[in-house]
Design a binder for these strands. Structure first.
Lengths: 199, 199
DNA sequence: CAGACTTTTTGACTTTAATCAAAAAAAGGC
DNA sequence: GCCTTTTTTTGATTAAAGTCAAAAAGTCTG
C-alpha cells in the first residue's frame, strides 16, 4: 500500500499532498518472488525500491568467489544500489530477494523529475542519505573496534529479528567473519552480561 | 581564500552568484594552530569547516583508552562531526588539528538559513552527503574484504601524500590495525606486483 | 516420506595480527 | 647541539579467527 510508503517518507520530512501526488504517479507497484536477482553485478541499478513486505540483501562477489553481504533491507525500508543508481555506473553488488517482496519502485528518471518538480525532494533525499551515512558510520566503527563476538551481539540488539530470517552464512559475511566462526560464537555458553546476585 | 572554497562547491554543483553571496556573508575565516582540539568528545559540533591549508583528523576514544582515527581531512576538503552537527547531539569523536589550518567555517544556524534561502543548497548538501557515503562504503568494503597489508596498499594508492604527513600510529588505527603490525608491513620486502621478466 | 540438497556444527590445524616488552631512531625544546 | 620526549622498529609470545574437512541437522521436493 502506498500509504505505508508515504508514512515512511513523512517520518523523514512531512510532504505536501501535491508532492505525494507526484510520487504516487511516478511510482510502480512491485511484486517479486524469492530468489529473484533484482540487480546483477555489472548492471546499472535503474530503480529505487520500497519494501512493503519481504526481505532482500545485497552482496559483493570477491575475486575468490566468496560473497560478502553488504546490507539487508526489510519492511518499511528503502533500498537501491546507491552508487550505481546515483552515478549510472555498473553496480559492484548483486541484489537478491530472500523473501517474496511486495512494494514499490521509482525509476532514475522519475526521481530526477521529482527533484526538478519539488525542491523538498532534494531535502528528503539529503535527510535519507544523511541517515544512511550515520548508520554506515556506526557499522564501520563497530567493525574496527569490536571483536567477532561483540559484533554478533551488536547485531542481535540492533536487528533482533534478522537472525530468524536469514541464513548464518549471509549473517557471517555481513559481520565480517566466516560461517564457522559465527557458528562457534553461537555455540559458546552465554557470558554473564552484568552483576547478578543469586542469594 | 574564499575563491578556492567556491571552486570546491562549484565542482559539486554550479552555484549562482546570489547563492555565493549568501555563503560568503555567513562564512567566517578560520585560523587554528597545530594541536588545537576543534571539537572534544561530548561537545556538540556547531560548525562545518572548509580547509584551505592544513590537516586535521577525527578520532574516537575507546573504553580501554585507545584512539581510533576515523578520518583525515586536508586541503580543499570539508569536514565536521557529521552526526553531531546534523542532529545537535554530543559528538563521540574528537577533532584534532595536525597541521596549522587556515580556512572557513559555517555555523549550524548559518547553514540552516542557507537551506531556507536557497533550495539549491539542499541539493548541494545531498550531493556532498552522497559523495561521502560512497567513499565510506568503499572504505568499509576494504575493511571487510582486505588483509592488513592490502588495506595499507590501498591507502598508499588512494592517499599517497598522507603517509608523509601523519604519524604511523594514527594511520594504523585508521586502517584498523596496531602500530606494530603496520610497522612490520612496511618493513617487509616489496612483493612483486606483476610479472616482470629479467632476461 | 524418502532421498537429495543445503545449512549448520564440530574438529584439527594454520595463519594473521595482537600483545607485551624493550631497543633504536627521530623530532622538539631550550 | 644536547637532552628529553615521542615515534618507530624489533623480538618473543599469545590470542583470535581462518582454513580445510567431515559429520550432523534441517529443508525441500517429487
Amino acid at each position: 500500500m502506498l500509504a505505508t510508503f508515504f508514512a515512511t517518507l513523512d517520518a523523514v520530512i512531512p510532504l505536501d499532498p501535491s508532492v505525494k501526488a507526484s510520487i504516487g504517479q511516478l511510482t510502480q507497484p512491485l511484486h517479486v518472488p524469492r530468489h529473484t536477482l533484482l540487480l546483477q553485478e555489472g548492471q546499472v541499478c535503474r530503480s529505487l525500491y520500497f519494501i512493503g513486505q519481504g526481505l532482500v540483501r545485497a552482496y559483493r562477489q570477491q575475486a575468490d568467489g566468496r560473497e560478502i553481504t553488504t546490507w539487508f533491507a526489510a519492511e518499511q525500508e528503502l533500498f537501491t544500489s546507491g552508487y550505481s543508481f546515483i552515478s549510472r555506473a555498473p553496480s559492484r553488488e548483486t541484489i537478491e530477494v530472500l523473501e517474496d517482496v511486495t512494494g514499490f519502485c521509482i525509476s532514475q528518471q522519475a526521481l530526477t523529475d521529482l527533484y526538478e518538480q519539488h525542491p523538498v525532494v532534494d531535502r528528503l533525499g539529503r535527510r535519507l542519505t544523511e541517515h544512511y551515512y550515520f548508520q554506515l558510520e556506526e557499522l564501520f566503527a563497530s567493525q574496527i573496534t569490536l571483536s567477532a563476538t561483540e559484533r554478533y551481539e551488536r547485531l542481535i540488539s540492533t536487528a533482533p529479528g534478522l537472525l530468524q530470517r536469514v541464513s548464518l552464512g549471509h549473517i557471517a559475511s555481513y559481520l565480517g567473519m566466516t560461517q564457522e566462526t559465527l557458528s562457534r560464537i553461537r555455540a559458546r555458553p552465554i557470558r554473564p552480561s552484568g552483576p547478578t546476585r543469586s542469594s
